[in-house]
């Protein structure tokens, strides 16, 4: 299972990467693996929405399961990856790269401190 070093993680299996105040958010390799083949992604937000930690971001459906993705940081949505909607299998193939979900203008970077780093998330997944 892949857990890239440079990302932060949330318990509900989202990853986040912040560069210049912009957070890119996606789901982890662990999440895509436990969902198995993703067939549908529905975003629960639009560009320009103000969001808080824990708000619903998207719903991801596979053949046998559905998972809710929630925001790991607060801020304003600036971009939504529409490619995912047409080709949801990207989430299984490359969850950390082409499979990103949204970009957010972060309003409070201190929130990042509450997230796990890679070793902590790795250990958390091993325990499940």
């Amino acid at each position: 299972m892949l857990v890239p070093e440079n990302l932060k993680y949330q318990k509900t299996d989202e990853w986040v990467k912040v560069e210049d105040g912009i957070a890119t958010i996606g789901i982890t390799d662990y999440a895509q693996d436990s969902l198995s083949d993703v067939v549908f992604v529905e975003f629960e937000i639009d560009v320009d929405d103000e969001v808080k930690v824990g708000d619903s971001l998207a719903t991801i459906e596979s053949v046998k399961a559905a998972a809710e993705v929630v925001f790991p940081v607060s801020g304003k949505v600036i971009e939504v990856n529409q490619t995912i909607v047409d080709t949801p299998e990207i989430l299984n193939e490359s969850p950390y790269t082409e499979g990103w979900l949204v970009k957010v203008q972060v309003s409070d970077e201190s929130e990042l401190e509450k997230l796990m780093d890679a070793p902590a998330y790795d250990a958390y997944c091993q325990d499940r």
Partner: peptide, 13 residues
């Protein structure tokens, strides 16, 4: 098909 929309999987969602 598309059963992931239904109550037995999504429950309160």
């Amino acid at each position: 098909t598309l059963t992931a929309r239904e109550q037995h999987i999504r429950r309160e969602k």
